[in-house]
């Protein structure tokens, strides 16, 4: 295989974009050229990466999961309430992740067993999971867990659950050499997902389903099982994101991650996944997530307001897609011209 092949991939373009971006930001503010600062900056958007990476798998199947932003809050409040109930914080973390998996199972079953548009299903669960997350403290009170404080668990409704142990909170800040734990977790997660996607049967099934679901059925691909697993992974990633945010903000809240939908989907789409299914890579999503995350950090650093950043992010998403579409049209046009030019010889 010729190595120049890699120079023409979308991932390589993203690497170039990332480097150029960091250099430009570095010219404006030299602190950006410090690796430690850069790595530290990732803490601000690690949750986006946790959720976006497995969402790539779902989007490859031509599906979508917009409920992940609610699963974040659900996982967070679960973690907090379990801890308040006296459960060891790491067991609580495991419960929170399990809740994410169950949420994913619910989505996955619904998507796999019916022909209802995944957008509608996860829109429904987006409301449902958010509602459960908001209502859970009060529900536990109703169920007789009144023992915790005079106002009951419902007191945690609005201010969130704080005072989580340092052993947990510290995870979000600890580093190996200069690399933060959460970023290491992102890399491990990306490696696992990438192996799953590109090296296993399951991963191949995802592409086959995304390109031609009917042919997948006719070829004996276990379509339903594969879809369920994809949504389970998405739920798990969202729970990971919610748990991370809990540690990062040192508070468990039902509404964590509510505004993350736009950056999550932007990362996946900018990473090269086609919203219509059949294409996308984990490394593309990771790189796109970093490009977007640093862009945000850089704009903040040079004094751009959060509001304007939101406008920029939206514009980046739309422009990237428009350019991609127009390049496709142009690519085909060129190919056809070439074939016509060769017609005398052909």
């Amino acid at each position: 295989m010729n190595w120049t092949r890699y120079l023409r991939t979308w991932e390589f373009a993203l690497v170039v974009l990332l480097v150029v971006e960091i250099l430009i930001l570095g010219m404006i503010n030299p602190t950006f050229l410090n690796a430690e600062n850069l790595l530290y900056a990732t803490l601000d958007f690690t949750h986006i990466l946790f959720a976006a990476l497995p969402l790539t798998l779902v989007i490859i199947t031509a599906g979508i999961d917009i409920s992940s932003v609610s699963v974040m809050g659900l996982a967070s409040i679960t973690l907090g309430l379990a801890w308040v109930a006296g459960i060891n914080i790491f067991v609580a973390l495991a419960i929170a992740l399990l809740v994410g998996i169950i949420a994913g199972l619910f989505n996955g079953f619904f998507v796999a067993k019916t022909d209802v548009n995944p957008l509608v299903i996860t829109l429904g669960t987006l409301f449902m999971f958010a509602g459960i997350a908001q209502g859970m403290p009060a529900l536990l009170d109703l169920l007789g867990f009144k023992a915790y404080g005079s106002a009951g668990l419902a007191a945690y409704q609005y201010e969130g659950i704080t005072g989580l142990p340092d052993s947990f909170i510290g995870l979000s800040e600890a580093t190996v050499w200069i690399i933060p734990y959460p970023f290491i977790a992102v890399l491990i997660f990306a490696v696992i997902l990438s192996l799953l996607l590109h090296k296993t049967r399951f991963g191949r099934y995802l592409y086959l389903i995304g390109v031609n679901p009917k042919a997948a059925v006719y070829s004996g691909v276990p379509v339903q099982k594969t879809l369920i697993w994809a949504y389970v992974l998405s739920g798990f990633g969202a729970a990971l994101a919610g748990s991370y945010l809990t540690a990062y903000f040192t508070s468990a809240r039902a509404d964590l991650g509510g505004d993350a939908l736009l950056p999550i989907i932007t990362a996946v789409v900018l990473g090269g996944a086609d919203i219509l299914g059949g294409s996308g890579t984990i490394w593309g999503t990771l790189l796109a997530g970093l490009v977007l995350g640093f862009l945000r950090q850089g704009l903040l650093a040079i004094g751009v307001t959060n509001d304007l950043i939101q406008v920029v992010m939206g514009a980046v998403l739309v422009t990237a897609m428009a350019v991609k579409q127009l390049m496709n049209v142009y690519g085909e046009y060129r190919l056809n011209r070439k074939a016509l030019a060769n017609k005398e010889r052909g």
Binding site: Y207, V211, N212, A215, G278
Partner: peptide
């Protein structure tokens, strides 16, 4: 095309 092949792969 509809049931046999994965055209984009």
């Amino acid at each position: 095309h509809a049931h046999g092949i994965f055209l984009d792969l």
